[in-house]
């Protein structure tokens, strides 16, 4: 009896304020979609870092024949200088940070990989072995400890430049972080709008049923019994909104990221629908929390004993 009665009350409430109910659903939908996008972007960044930081190296480019760098004043790097550089990298203070062996890429090696990469390109065919630059490729045990290696090698004769490949990615990660921030900011604004809208909806609903709630109080209905239909109304609308958000994110991840991006740019590890499966319950919980917070704030004022 109780349950059936409560559900019929909820049905009446939702139908009576249909346009408000729809707007609550839409606002929750949009806000939670932004929350989801922000979270997925962060997941994406995490995945790329995991994948790439393991592969990236620090490249110590050795002096070519015509370089203006002060450490290259003696001209092209000599075998003697190279031995010294190698020794510097093998000294005990630095060695623990470096994965042995250190790979040496000669000019011939560089040329070979260059040719392979730009096969068939006319401009590339003009390049010669002497245009290439020899380098030490150093894999770090901990990719964040780049500075240690850079300090050891900078200023050493024969090293033109030390480059951390990580920097190339960092700009991209920065862009993605900014996008996360933007999406998170929009999510916050929309969440606020959602709370205000749910509050208003519940208030309208409570006011339009003041006669009923008045009689309920009079005949001794418990507070929970009086407030539950209103709370559930908000919760149901918010849950539908959350479900729509999950659906939209799923479609986005499936068709946009996995199917489209995944087939055109294949070397990036993308977020998958599995990541979304982990995220979905969280979004639903946020939606329900939104409704719960709004209900508690509103109902205390409008249906109190």
């Amino acid at each position: 009896m109780r349950l059936r009665f409560i559900f019929s009350e909820i049905g009446i409430g939702l139908r009576r304020n249909l346009s408000m109910t729809i707007s609550v659903i839409l606002v929750t939908f949009v806000s939670l979609t932004f929350v989801g996008v922000a979270s997925l972007l962060q997941t994406q960044i995490g995945k790329m870092k995991d994948d790439w930081y393991g592969k990236v190296e620090v490249a110590a480019y050795l002096c070519p024949s015509h370089s203006t760098a002060p450490t290259c004043a003696a001209g092209e790097v000599t075998p003697d200088q190279m031995t010294k550089i190698k020794a510097a990298l093998e000294q005990p203070e630095v060695a623990p940070y470096i994965q042995q062996p250190i790979y040496f890429e000669s000019k011939q090696d560089a040329y070979a990989s260059f040719e392979k990469r730009f096969a068939g390109d006319f401009m590339a065919s003009l390049a010669t072995v002497d245009d290439m630059q020899a380098s030490f490729r150093i894999k770090l045990a901990d990719p964040t400890k780049y500075q240690v290696v850079a300090d050891v090698l900078s200023g050493v004769q024969g090293v033109e430049q030390v480059q951390d490949q990580r920097q190339l990615f960092d700009r991209m990660f920065l862009i993605m972080d900014r996008a996360t921030l933007l999406s998170g900011g929009l999510a916050a604004v929309m969440l606020l709008a959602a709370i205000l809208l749910i509050t208003t909806t519940i208030r309208l609903s409570a006011l339009s049923r003041r006669r009923e709630t008045g009689i309920m109080r009079l005949v001794g209905a418990s507070n929970l019994f009086i407030e539950l239909p209103f709370m559930l109304e908000g919760a149901i609308a918010a849950t539908i909104g959350a479900a729509l958000a999950v659906g939209a994110l799923w479609a986005g991840v499936k068709y946009l990221v996995v199917d489209w991006l995944g087939s055109s740019v294949q070397w990036i590890p993308y977020v998958t629908t599995a990541d979304l499966t982990r995220l979905a319950p969280l979004l639903v919980v946020i939606g329900i929390l939104l409704a719960a917070i709004s209900s508690v704030v509103t109902l205390n004022r409008y249906t109190r004993v």
């Binding site: 009896m1 109780r2 009665f5 009689i215 309920m216 005949v219 209905a221 019994f225």
Partner: peptide
């Protein structure tokens, strides 16, 4: 209504 909202069973009502 007065009985429903205080949770009385259906047959009682």
């Amino acid at each position: 209504f007065a009985l429903q909202v205080i949770g009385k069973p259906r047959h009682h009502i």
